[in-house]
């Protein structure tokens, strides 16, 4: 039970972090696609998903240690 709560907390923090990084990528990419034809909507979407996943994984690895230290 305690482990499940800890995981949920970590997942929450990680998701927020990943959403923030993903949103940053999305905004920048959308900006690029208006300036350059090489950047398509698919690039933006796929890139956002990739960045979100990578950031989520990093978050899942880093947040438990951060929370542990805080406690």
């Amino acid at each position: 039970m305690i482990m499940a709560i800890q995981f949920a907390r970590t997942l929450g923090f990680s998701s927020v972090t990943a959403l923030a990084v993903g949103a940053l990528f999305y905004v920048l990419s959308a900006e690029m696609s208006t300036a350059s034809a090489a950047y398509t909507v698919n690039d933006t979407y796929l890139g956002t998903v990739f960045v979100f996943v990578l950031a989520l994984i990093i978050g899942l690895a880093v947040w438990p240690r951060v929370l542990e230290k805080k406690e």
Binding site: F25, L28, S29, M32, D43, G47, F50, V51, L54, I58
Partner: peptide, 10 residues
């Protein structure tokens, strides 16, 4: 890898 992705993308 994440930073490299950002760099090579943008």
């Amino acid at each position: 890898a994440l930073v490299a992705f950002f760099y090579w993308y943008f």
